[in-house]
């Protein structure tokens, strides 16, 4: 019962909140991941292993951050996607619920 009402409110979220719930938590986590990862590994030293000599640290941080962000954003997007209700019956129920509320 409670989950139904919660889900129905989730469906009615403002677009901005939907966009933010994908881009924002992933941004924060990507920032953390970048800090942790590059505290341990220096980007230019990592690049040397691959034989790339012209990768500056700043370039490494930037590319690393955006790769992390891409991954975390994908993960957030998948979470949001799988949270969508799948049974058509569900919609009927919430309509009734909404009617009852009003």
């Amino acid at each position: 019962m409670t989950t139904d009402t919660e889900n129905s409110s989730e469906e009615n979220l403002p677009t901005i909140q939907k966009v933010i719930s994908i881009l924002w938590p992933s941004f924060v986590m990507a920032a953390f991941a970048t800090i942790f990862f590059f505290t341990v590994f220096s980007p230019s030293e990592l690049a040397l292993i691959k034989g790339w000599t012209d990768v500056s640290n700043l370039a490494g941080y930037t590319i690393g951050f955006f790769l992390f962000w891409l991954l975390t954003a994908l993960s957030c997007a998948l979470t949001c996607f799988f949270r969508k209700p799948c049974t058509p019956k569900y919609y009927k129920n919430t309509d009734e619920l909404d009617d009852a509320e009003e």
């Binding site: 403002p14 901005i16 909140q17 933010i20 719930s21 924002w24």
Partner: peptide, 9 residues
Amino acid sequence: LREQVCIYM
């Protein structure tokens, strides 16, 4: 975004 940052983020 303004207040929406406070409310949603």
